[in-house]
Design a protein around this nucleic acid. Structure first.
Lengths: 222, 222
DNA sequence: TCAAAAGTGTTTGTTCTACACCCATGG
DNA sequence: CCATGGGTGTAGAACAAACACTTTTGA
């Protein structure tokens, strides 16, 4: 078995999900970066960069994510490692992560700093043709997100610190792409330990709704 | 962001599961390789090797698996990529796979070729201290196997081509570490499309049991 | 006082689990 | 003919989906 590592480079990319306002419902979106050099110059690609010798892959994912969005994610998990020979003109093994960003932070950052250079948000259901095998990667990340939302309370990572059950349900509906019964949804989440009720209420158009907070510890049990 | 890939090497390792005979019940075991050079010379480690420039990571996993066991697996899936800075004296990113081997092939290969050099099988519940972070990796692979066995019909990959429902149930019991109700187990698997009944029967000690065959296609639906 | 969302309760159907029971074969 | 594993049936628990209904607010 040969030692050939010198000619293989390791990259780290991240599929970053966040909810962004839309006339009707919130839309699930991801940021893409316009490539400024060959190969695929001018095309959109997932944010990422080369793995540095002095950092672990997880740290590299957090770093490249921060460089792209100037934000720290509420959730960050390894997705998959793509290492086919022909996925890039040069030999690159990409360790890909996926992340959730709280929508309020994204909005705040956006209005303060303006959109970072060469970064733009796209609806996950209307992505352009991406560089490399990034369309395939984004599809897979979306599949994993929808999957995980089904059996964990992870979707709260897309919302601000406090939120109503309706807001959370709308997140689930945006991600899963289907309607959920409000009363059953309530029962399900009140049964799990994942949410802790607060004493505050969101007083909007109608009857005030209790605000909940996400309980990260209780979600450890898968 | 620096281009530092030259100093990072990519390795591929595989956690290979197979069932091996035991006085009472079958035991779930994995093959380990004794290291013949530094670091960790003389210690047991997961089979693996350097990723070659001309092969994809999946092919590399299959190749190193074949070099170790002289067998092709009935199941091979990427597990995780371990890339912490301090997991090895030199900077190594390991793409780890996990695999299932049919027990009959292992037995056949073993009796014909004898044990390959420096390779030995260990019970997953009694592993020695391994090189690098390989104990941690093996634990994780075992967790994933048990998890996956819960919701897919993958365990048939540990058995020969044809098998009785009792044999399959014993595999599940070995992997999961608990007893299953024979009648419920039967119903569950007859309900899924994963198994196809044959017209043959295993005629042993008592009433003959129908032989089944694993239906790979039907298992595609997750 | 009405519309609409918050929140509670009930009904029904499905799936899981435990276990009682019959069947077929080797000894 | 009997012990043993192969195989079928079924009652009860646990869970999920559908939906009727009550409560509380803003307008």
């Amino acid at each position: 078995m040969g030692r050939a590592g010198d000619e293989i480079r390791v990259a780290v990319s991240t599929v970053i999900f966040s909810l962004r306002q839309d006339p009707d419902s919130d839309r699930l979106m991801i940021p893409l970066v316009r490539r400024t050099r060959e190969p695929y110059e001018g095309m959109w690609a997932l944010p990422g960069g080369w793995l540095d010798v002095a950092e672990g892959v997880h740290e590299a994912a957090a770093r490249t994510l921060e460089e792209t969005t100037a934000l720290t994610p509420s959730y960050l998990e390894q997705l998959y490692t793509f290492g086919e020979v022909d996925r890039s003109p040069t030999r690159v093994v990409s360790v890909v992560y996926w992340a959730l960003l709280r929508s309020d932070l994204v909005d705040a950052q956006r209005s303060v700093a303006g959109a970072p250079e060469n970064v733009e948000w796209f609806d996950v259901d209307a992505l352009p043709t991406l560089a490399f095998d990034h369309n395939h990667i984004a599809e897979y990340a979306l599949w994993r997100l929808r999957n995980k939302v089904g059996y964990s309370r992870i979707a709260a990572g897309l919302l601000p610190d406090e939120f109503t059950l309706s807001e959370l349900r709308e997140v689930y509906e945006s991600v899963l792409g289907r309607r959920l019964d409000p009363s059953n949804f309530r029962r399900l989440l009140e049964g799990s330990e994942a949410l802790v009720p607060t004493e505050s209420f969101r007083t909007g158009k109608h009857r005030p709704a209790r605000l909940y907070r996400y309980n990260a510890e209780a979600d450890e049990a898968l």
